[in-house]
C-alpha cells in the first residue's frame, strides 16, 4: 500500500477552481479593487482626514477645493471629504446590515418552505408574492410621518419586505436537494430535520446566498441614498451618502457648488458598479456547471 502524505484535511479543490475562475475575469477584478479601495478609505477615514464630519464652522462655509479642505466645505462649513468618508461608513454599514438580515431571514424561510412543502410552502410563497407586489416606498412615507425617521425602522422594513428574491432561490435549491440520495440517506438513518436542513442542505445553497448578500449591499446603499434624498429614510444628523445628497438638492447648490452632489454621487456610483462587477464574477466562479 502506498503511503500518502495527507493527514490533514486537504483544501477542497472546488474552492481552488472557483478562485482560479474568478481571477480570470478582468471586470470582476476591477470590481474587487474598487470595492477594496472604497472600503479601506471608509475604514481608515480618521487617517485620511482630521476633520469631524459633523463639526460646523460658519467662518469656513462654501469653500472651494484647497490644501486645507481637499474637496471644499458645504454651506455650514463642514469638510466634504470628511463627510463623504465617514458617511461611507454609515452607508456601507447600513447596506451590509440590511443585506445580511434580509438574506438570513430569506435563507431560513426558503429552507423551511422547501423542506416541509405542503401548506407551509404554499403560505410562504403566497406571502412572498404579496410582498413583491407591495409598494415599500409607501410604508416609508407613512412611517416617516407617524414615527419619525430612524435607522432601526428603516432596517426592519427592509428586512421584513426584502426577503422574497433570495427566499425563492433557496427554496428551489432545497426542493431539488430534497430528492438527492445523500439527503434521502440522512432521512433513512433518522437524522433530525434540523440537521438535514442546516447541516446538509444549506451549505449546498451557500453559493447563491453569498452572491445575493454581496449584490444586495449595493442595492441597499442605493436605496438608502434614494430614500434619504427624498427625506423619508434616515435621520438628518447621520452623515450618510444619501443625507449629503439631500443637503445638496437646492437649485443654487446644484448649479454653483457641483462638488457637493458630485462627490457623494460618484461614491455611490463607484460602490454599486464595483459590487455588481464583483458579484457577476462571483456568480460565474461559484457556478460549478460552467467552466
Amino acid at each position: 500500500m502506498k503511503k500518502t502524505k495527507q493527514n490533514k484535511p486537504v483544501k477542497s479543490s472546488l474552492t481552488k477552481r472557483s478562485i482560479q475562475k474568478f481571477m480570470k475575469n478582468r471586470l470582476a477584478i476591477v470590481g474587487l479593487i474598487g470595492l477594496f479601495l472604497l472600503l479601506t478609505a471608509c475604514i481608515c477615514a480618521p487617517l485620511l482626514t482630521s476633520y469631524d464630519p459633523g463639526f460646523i464652522d460658519l467662518t469656513q462655509k462654501s469653500l472651494p477645493m484647497s490644501a486645507e479642505h481637499p474637496l471644499g466645505t458645504d454651506r455650514l462649513g463642514r469638510d466634504l471629504l470628511a463627510r463623504v468618508l465617514y458617511g461611507g461608513r454609515w452607508s456601507l454599514l447600513i447596506g451590509i446590515a440590511a443585506s445580511l438580515g434580509t438574506n438570513l431571514l430569506a435563507a431560513i424561510l426558503g429552507c423551511v418552505s422547501g423542506y416541509y412543502g405542503g401548506k407551509v410552502d404554499r403560505t410562504l410563497v403566497t406571502v412572498q408574492e404579496f410582498m413583491s407586489l407591495f409598494p415599500t416606498t409607501l410604508i416609508f412615507i407613512l412611517l416617516a410621518g407617524i414615527t419619525g425617521r430612524s435607522i432601526n425602522i428603516v432596517l426592519a422594513i427592509w428586512i421584513l419586505t426584502g426577503w422574497g428574491g433570495t427566499m425563492r432561490i433557496v427554496r428551489s435549491r432545497i426542493l431539488s436537494l430534497k430528492q438527492e440520495p445523500f439527503v434521502e440517506s440522512c432521512r433513512a438513518n433518522g437524522i433530525s430535520s434540523f440537521s438535514i436542513m442546516f447541516h446538509h442542505m444549506v451549505p449546498n445553497t451557500m453559493g447563491p446566498i453569498i452572491l445575493n448578500v454581496t449584490m444586495n449591499v449595493g442595492g441597499y446603499v442605493l436605496s438608502e441614498a434614494g430614500l434619504t434624498y427624498l427625506g423619508i429614510g434616515l435621520p438628518a444628523d447621520i452623515p450618510t451618502w444619501g443625507n449629503i445628497l439631500n443637503g445638496a438638492k437646492r437649485m443654487d447648490i446644484l448649479l454653483n457648488e457641483p462638488l457637493l452632489w458630485m462627490v457623494p454621487g460618484a461614491a455611490i456610483l463607484l460602490l454599486t458598479l464595483s459590487i455588481n462587477f464583483f458579484g457577476d464574477g462571483l456568480r460565474d466562479a461559484l457556478d460549478s456547471t460552467t467552466k
Binding site: M1, K2, T4, Q6, N7, K8, P9, V10, S12, S13
Partner: peptide, 11 residues
C-alpha cells in the same frame, strides 16, 4: 486507505 476519510467526495 484509512486516511481517505479526510478527503472530499469529489476527489
Amino acid at each position: 486507505q484509512p486516511d481517505y476519510m479526510y478527503r472530499y467526495p469529489h476527489e
